[in-house]
Design a protein around this nucleic acid. Structure first.
Lengths: 271, 271
DNA sequence: CGGGCGATTTGACGTGCATCAATCCGGCCA
DNA sequence: TGGCCGGATTGATGCACGTCAAATCGCCCG
């Protein structure tokens, strides 16, 4: 069960890590990074595989390198809710807590960098700059979760779909521009299954399907296949979503938002 | 606007603070606590008064001493959503961020202990044990926010009302038992206005009214007045809510949950 | 004690969306 | 190439809940 059984001495190769610059570990100093990689290892998980069980040991924490995880809560009667999604560069897990209070599962085939929880906590204790960065990311996650309250509490289902498409579109755009590719064609991949998407948006696959096709007929988006869409009319989609541009940015947990705090942090090494 | 203009030298009296043992500041060492109080001051805010504007400067942070704050997001078209409530002992505000991304308003007449944001950050930098405690509380808030996703995304309105009553009932119970009073009569005060409650639960005042009276007719609760209820049948209410007992605890941000991590923290002074 | 005003309750009505069910589509394997 | 199967679409139906409106209940102030 405790899948993060890294034996010291192994470790991971960080040099070519895809999320090297954005992940939590990048904020650690030279020494801290060396410690972290000693206790970490890369793990591949297939779609729908459980990463951390919903009611179990909080054995390890980690960062998504590629793919996406879904955070799920199941109710006694079997209803299941996706309460969050974890994308590349984002941290997951629950430090300083022995048991989990929701589950992590791979939404698609993914690659994650996991660290024994206790070892990770030790690193945090020895390296306050890492703990600081974790705090910033956690506060960002909290802002995103609050934004989700707005989405689930105040938006109708069409607005939710529009919002999701915009968020994914922006995410993809910044990802492409980061690796230097031309992001001109705005192609938003839903990536995750319709079932996950429906649960994440607090609705059903049927409703999603209807709205997506409605947007397509209106010329706002183009359907490439059932999980890939191109945003044709960004302005109109934004108007339909009902939210502001600023609100959309809150969904991005590891965005530049946290980093640029004048006069603070930006500690030791790692470029 | 920057309401937390504490001039050094003033400060607050912490000795008789109602939330002394639970608040963030309690975790600070002797030295840290002295610094914190130097830059803090008590502020009284009337119901519906704005504490921090929705789009403005993140001038100060603070802790609720008495009363309750609501966190609000407003949409371009005027729809307003209460994305969270802040109760006594809980921290609020956004350290390490110059601008706010949602507003704080007094839900009822309240008393808050505010600290200049920049001064607070300086304390965090000098006292990692306080930052650590803030991290724990933030992670708890995140868990609560995720639980709210479940509430808004998967529960019907009756279940939401039941859940809310249970949470408030538990909160009051532990508050009474903390000050040594007999919590036998479970009286859950809604405290906040129907309008806030409706928004918080993602529904309308009419629907709330109907469900509350439905529960009352069924003998599950007793209506004392429009904002005070007594839980008569805890078991049945829990069954109606559809969630587990464990899930309810996640709504409690400053509960014992965070504190009891074996072998960690529990730093310097303050009993 | 009486009048007035905001908040709550109650009722009637309409609808957005879930539900159920049938059809369609695409990938996989023989 | 053809048949199968899970996922996606499309349609038909029902209901939970939002909306609008009227009635009622407090509470403050004269």
């Amino acid at each position: 069960m405790t899948a993060g059984n890294a034996v010291p001495g192994e470790g991971v190769q960080c040099e070519h890590c895809a999320v090297r610059s954005r992940a939590l570990c990048a904020s650690a100093g030279h020494e801290g990074q060396r410690e972290l990689r000693r206790w970490s290892r890369i793990r591949r998980v297939a779609a729908d595989e459980t990463v951390l069980p919903e009611h179990g040991e909080s054995g390890f924490v980690g960062t998504v390198v590629a793919g996406a995880l879904r955070q799920v809560k199941t109710m006694p009667d079997g209803r299941e809710q996706v309460v969050g999604l974890v994308f590349p560069g984002e941290f997951f897990g629950r430090p300083f807590r022995a048991r989990t209070d929701f589950g992590y599962e791979a939404a698609i085939d993914s690659e994650i960098c996991v660290t024994e929880r206790l070892a990770f906590e030790a690193v945090l204790r020895r390296h306050p700059e890492v703990e600081h960065q974790l705090l910033l990311q956690t506060m960002n996650e909290l802002a995103a979760a609050r934004e989700r309250s707005l989405l689930l509490g105040s938006l109708d289902t069409l607005e939710r779909v529009a919002t999701y498409l915009l968020v994914m579109s922006a995410r993809r755009e910044q990802m492409l521009s980061r690796i230097g590719q031309d992001p001109r064609l705005e192609v938003a991949a839903s990536l995750i299954s319709r079932r996950d998407l429906a649960s994440y948006l607090g609705t059903t696959i049927e409703t999603i399907s209807r709205h997506v096709h409605h947007l397509s007929r209106g010329g706002v988006i183009r359907i490439i296949d059932s999980s890939h869409f191109e945003v044709l009319d960004h302005q109109r989609l934004l108007a339909i979503s009902g939210v502001t541009h600023d609100d959309l940015r809150l969904f991005d947990v590891v965005g530049e938002s946290a980093a640029a705090e004048p006069g603070h942090a930006r500690p030791a090494g790692a470029a």
